[in-house]
C-alpha cells in the first residue's frame, strides 16, 4: 500500500518490526548457541560463537540428567490427555453445536465459564480430592486433569466448527438409517477435521508445556514430565555448574514445540480466527 505510507515512514515501521523480531529471536538463538559451548566458553563471553559444534552437552543431558526418561513421561501424558480430551470434547461439541434442546444455552455458558477458571483457583481442593481418591502421583489421572482443564476451550472451538457443517448431510445419513454415533463418526468427525487438528495441536502445546499441576501432583522423580524434570536439573546443575547441559536440556524441550509450530503455524493461526479466540 504505497498510498498509506511514505518511503521514510515505511523505513521506520520496518525498523520497529525488526526490533521486535530480534528481541524475540535472539534469546532463543543465544540458548541454542550456548548449548554447544563448553563450560569455560559459557563463562567467558555470552556473545562469542561456540568454537565447535560439540554434542557433548546433549549426551550429558540424556545420560546423567535423565532427560530421556522425563521426555517419555511427557509423551505418555500428552498422548493420554489428548485421547481423553477428544473422547470427551468431540461428542460434547457435536451435541451442543448441532442439536436443539432445552438447556443447551445454559450448558454452553457453563462451559464458557470454565474458560476463566484455571489452575491456581482450584489446585488445593483438586489436590485434596485426588489425595483422597489415591489419584496423586499417577500419570493417567494427571492426564485426566489436563484433558478436563482444556475442555471448555476445546468444546468452544469445536462447536464453532460443527455449526458450520450443513445439516443436509446429517439428514441424508439419517434417512439412510444411520444412528447418532454413526453420523458422528462417519460425517461429523471427517468434516470437522480442521477443527480437530487445530485442537490437537493447541493441546499438544498446552500439555507438553504444563508445569504447575505436574509439579504439584507428581512426586516420584521417575514419573515427572520434562518441564518439571528440567527445573530439577537446573537445581542440580547449579551445584555442578554444568551450564552447557542445562542449555542443551532447554533446547531439547523447546525443539519439538518449535518444530510443530513451524510446520503447522498457518493452520494454527487460521484455527485461532475460526474458533473465535478473537472474542
Amino acid at each position: 500500500m504505497s498510498t498509506r505510507a511514505s518511503l521514510a515512514g515505511k523505513g521506520i515501521l520496518r525498523l520497529f518490526l525488526l526490533l521486535q523480531a530480534v528481541f524475540v529471536v535472539y534469546p532463543l538463538v543465544w540458548n541454542v548457541l550456548a548449548s554447544f559451548k563448553t563450560n569455560a566458553e559459557v563463562m567467558e563471553s555470552p556473545w562469542k560463537l561456540p568454537t565447535s559444534i560439540n554434542w557433548d552437552n546433549y549426551i550429558q543431558a540424556f545420560s546423567t540428567a535423565k532427560i530421556g526418561d522425563y521426555m517419555v513421561n511427557s509423551v505418555i501424558i500428552v498422548l493420554l490427555s489428548m485421547a481423553v480430551l477428544l473422547f470427551a470434547a468431540v461428542p460434547s461439541a457435536y451435541v451442543l453445536g448441532r442439536m436443539k434442546f432445552r438447556g443447551r444455552g445454559f450448558i454452553s455458558q457453563f462451559y464458557m465459564a470454565g474458560l476463566f477458571i484455571g489452575g491456581v483457583y482450584i489446585i488445593v481442593p483438586l489436590f485434596i480430592f485426588m489425595n483422597d481418591m489415591h489419584m496423586l502421583d499417577n500419570r493417567f489421572w494427571l492426564s485426566a486433569v489436563y484433558a478436563t482443564g482444556s475442555l471448555p476451550f476445546s468444546v468452544y472451538l469445536l462447536t464453532g466448527f460443527m455449526k458450520s457443517i450443513p445439516l443436509d448431510y446429517e439428514e441424508a445419513a439419517m434417512i439412510d438409517g444411520c444412528g447418532y454415533f454413526g453420523i458422528l463418526l462417519r460425517i461429523i468427525v471427517p468434516m470437522a477435521r480442521p477443527g480437530i487438528i487445530t485442537l490437537i495441536v493447541f493441546s499438544f502445546f498446552d500439555f507438553w508445556n504444563e508445569y504447575v499441576l505436574a509439579m504439584t501432583f507428581i512426586t516420584t522423580d521417575s514419573k515427572k514430565t520434562i518441564p518439571v524434570g528440567l527445573s530439577n536439573l537446573m537445581q542440580i546443575q547449579q551445584f555442578a555448574t554444568d551450564w552447557g547441559s542445562l542449555f542443551a536440556g532447554l533446547v531439547i524441550v523447546l525443539a519439538p514445540t518449535i518444530l510443530v509450530y513451524a510446520l503447522l503455524q498457518k493452520k494454527l493461526t487460521e484455527g485461532m480466527s475460526l474458533g473465535g479466540v478473537k472474542g
Binding site: 529471536v25 534469546p27 532463543l28 508445556n209 508445569y211 518441564p227 528440567l230 527445573s231 532447554l250 514445540t257
Partner: peptide, 21 residues
C-alpha cells in the same frame, strides 16, 4: 510467525532461560 513463537513455548523453560540471561 516469529512473534507468536514464544507464546507456544514452555513457560518453565523460558523462565530458566531468562534466569541465565
Amino acid at each position: 510467525t516469529i512473534y507468536f513463537t514464544p507464546v507456544m513455548l514452555s513457560t518453565a523453560v523460558l523462565g530458566i532461560l531468562w534466569g541465565q540471561i
